[in-house]
Structure formats: structure tokens, C-alpha cells
Write a protein that binds this DNA or RNA. Sequence first.
DNA 1: TAGATTGTTAATCGATTAACAATC
DNA 2: TAGATTGTTAATCGATTAACAATC
Lengths: 239, 239
Amino acid sequence: MNNDELEIIGEMQQDLEIGESASSPKAYVSPAVIKRLPRYFRYLRELIRNGKMRISSGELSKIMNVTASQIRQDLNCFGGFGQQGYGYNVKYLYAKISEILGVNCNFKAVIIGAGNLGRALVRNPMFTKRGVSTVAMFDIDKSLIGGTFAGVTVHPMEELETFCRENAIDIAVLTLPKECAQEIAGRLCSAGVHGIWNFTGKELDLLIKDIKVVNVHLGDSLMTLCYELNLLREENEDK
Amino acid sequence: MNNDELEIIGEMQQDLEIGESASSPKAYVSPAVIKRLPRYFRYLRELIRNGKMRISSGELSKIMNVTASQIRQDLNCFGGFGQQGYGYNVKYLYAKISEILGVNCNFKAVIIGAGNLGRALVRNPMFTKRGVSTVAMFDIDKSLIGGTFAGVTVHPMEELETFCRENAIDIAVLTLPKECAQEIAGRLCSAGVHGIWNFTGKELDLLIKDIKVVNVHLGDSLMTLCYELNLLREENEDK
DNA sequence: TAGATTGTTAATCGATTAACAATC
DNA sequence: TAGATTGTTAATCGATTAACAATC
């Protein structure tokens, strides 16, 4: 069976799925599984880039350093994406995982705080790769307002609510000093934003329940590295 | 019992522990526990800032939104830091957790890549708060070399190995384009660095086993937010 | 002493892995 | 058809929670 035929199988599955997806009753999926999905997304993207058409759970497990069992179990939380005897069509699987992760949702984001971190993020291809468009930045610094970073204009903070409402913003990225985080989060709630990607290190108290927050604690990540180095050092001292 | 007395208990425990710590045989601690330690560290720091002297696992559990059982279980992986009937001395507990996480190790770090992300990190108080000092930055851009960010000088990439060796650098922070990540990681191995904090999104293959890598995949974090928003959207559509 | 709260063991729950029948 | 590999159930493993005796 050659690559073209496999391509066709993929497309057949895809067609089939369009009819199914609306009716498929989605059961609860554990956070452990969800957290692994972006990693599949990355590896599948890489496989496509390398021209790989088909992969078995066993082959993928070796590349990703996980068990084949876990891969099959994970994928089957969302439906049968493979074919017995053949494995998985890479492009099709990538498309399904993208769909699950909302890559095709065209979410719109604003970055609040045009400091170094805000600028680093807006210039990062990450958003584009994941189907999120960064449509504006906000800052209090008058000297930044009106300027652009990676083609994105910096707006004054006063315009935050109006802008978010008028442009139906889904995601706000908080890259501002932690002192302002709570106040801005409150304003974002009333501006109809659905998700906050929070880099401030402040744990946010939100009145509205239906707003999702994902916190990025870079310091926590640094500390796990320090823990390991400390462990290593102690081991070496013992010798 | 007043605050002064509790303070004394804390100090007594601390004195006691100094003798013990060298001999205490450290059993395996699961990654699940390790990952939670930095969060305890943050909350305890905050409690100290607010002048809180003593806390019970029950009280802390309410603040941190976890079970009291988990807190006691977690802490007891490293030793008995509390006192029956009284709870935990906040400063003492903070000191012990800092010790476990290597905050007092005075690790020395270099930041490789003086772009926006590198600059955002070097200006962040995170390193200082966690006892890590950022002693140098490196870049290939001639126009940046010799300049400083947050008092840290940018060196040319050619000096990387010599500098790391001579200054006994523990940690390298990779904030450079993913294309160069693998090459630089190799050079860092031979330069005697013990830990890599990797922001490049490239999974590193390292020859030396005794070098620890912590990967930060910001895109993965963004995707979990998108997943939740997608879920929310689907739920609303069903209504 | 009585009350409170830890440290720790036992029970439960969830996540991972193994195994294999179904089927491409 | 025979071989390969999935989807899925059952077994194992680990992590969380509950309970309570120890003890401050």
C-alpha cells in the first residue's frame, strides 16, 4: 500500500467524521490526558514536516518516549482515529487533535502589558501556529501607545473594555506587573473575555465562573530545576 | 501561647534539624510532590509577608485549595516539620522548603539569547527571589555585545565555554532560536553546566547523563487554555 | 489535663500498563 | 488469507484522601 492510498484512507475517515462529530457525546476526559495533547500536536506537526504519512502507536511511542498503550488509550478518549492493522494516518490524526485543541477556532487575543515579556510573546510564532491571532496590545506607558510590535498596535489601557467588546476578544494575555493583575482581570470579566493566560504570578479571584484561567508560573519551573541540581550536588557530596 | 513563644519553637526545631539533616536518609520523593513544592514556597512567602507566624494544615489547605491530608503527606516526605497540637511555624517551614528546593545553594546562571524573552527574564525578580544569580548574558548580535540589561552584561557567544568554566556556572537559560538550541546545548555540556532551562521548544538530545533539563513549552500552556475555551464554546452551542 | 493537630497507616480513587479479541 | 495493529477490557501501579493513634 503506497502513500497515496493511505492519504485516501485519511480523507475517507475525515469525511466520515464530519457527519459523526456533531452527534458524538463527549465523555469526561481527565486533565492528565488533556495535558498530553499539545505534545502529540507538536510531534505530529514535526512528522508531517518530515513527510511521514502513517504511524503506529508503537513507532510513535518510541519517538515520544511513552508507552504505546498510553497513546492508544489517550486517543481513544476522543474516538477511534486509527485503523486496525495499519496504524494512524499522520495528517488525519493531526487534524483531529487540532480540532480537539481548538486550533481551528480562530480565537482572538490581546496582550496586556507591552514590556519585554509581552513583546517576546507577540513576536513568537506560537500564536499563529496554534490558530490564535494577537489583534492588539495594551499598556499604560504613553511612549509605547500607538507603536507596533510584530505589526500589533499598542492601545491605551482606557480602551481595554471597549476594544474587547467591539472585537469579540476571546483571550487576554496578562504580562503586566502583578500589582495590577487583579484589577485588570476584573475589567476583563466585564468585557466579555473568556480566557486569561496569566503570567503575573498573582492567583486571580474571579467573580464570573465561566472564565478560564491558565497560570504560568515560570518561577515554579525554575525551582524544579534547582531542586534537581541540589539533589545532584548532595549525591556528589556523599561520594 | 503568644507569637514570641512560637518563634522560639521554630528556632528550637531549626537548631535540632541542623544536627539531623546531614544524617537523614532521603528516600525517593515522587515527581507529583516535587511539582507542588514551589507552590508551598510561594504561599509561605506570602504568609510571612503578612506577618503570619503559625499555620495548621487545615488552615493552609483552605488558602491553597488542596486537602489538609495532602499537605501533611507532602511535607512528611522530607521530615516532621510540624508539632502535634500546634501546627507549623511559618518561617521554619519556609526555611525548610527553601532548603529542599535549593534556594540557599547560590546557583549561578547565564542567559543565552538577549532577545525579548532573555531580557524579560533577566529583569524579573524571580531569579533573585529563588537564590539564583544571573551573572551574564550571551548573544551573537554584535550590537548587543558589551551592553547591559538589569546590570547584566551581554558577552559574545565565542566566550561561552570559557566563561562558564571560569565562573562555575550551574544553569544555562536557553532563550535563543530553536535552530541553535541543540548545538549550544552540546557546548554547554562540555562547559560543565549542570542544568538547562530550555525555552526553545526543541527537545534536546544530550550526551552527558548528569545534566538536568527543564523544558518550558509556552505553546502547550496556551493550548490547554484553547482546549477549555473550545469546550466552553461547544457547551454553549448545545444549549 | 483537655483540646488540637500532627505523623502515619489504611482505604479509596484514578491513571497507567498489559493483554487480547476485533478487524483492517 | 495471514500479519499487523488498533480499540478496549482487565490488572497493576501510584497518588490522594480518610481515619486515628501519638503527642504537643
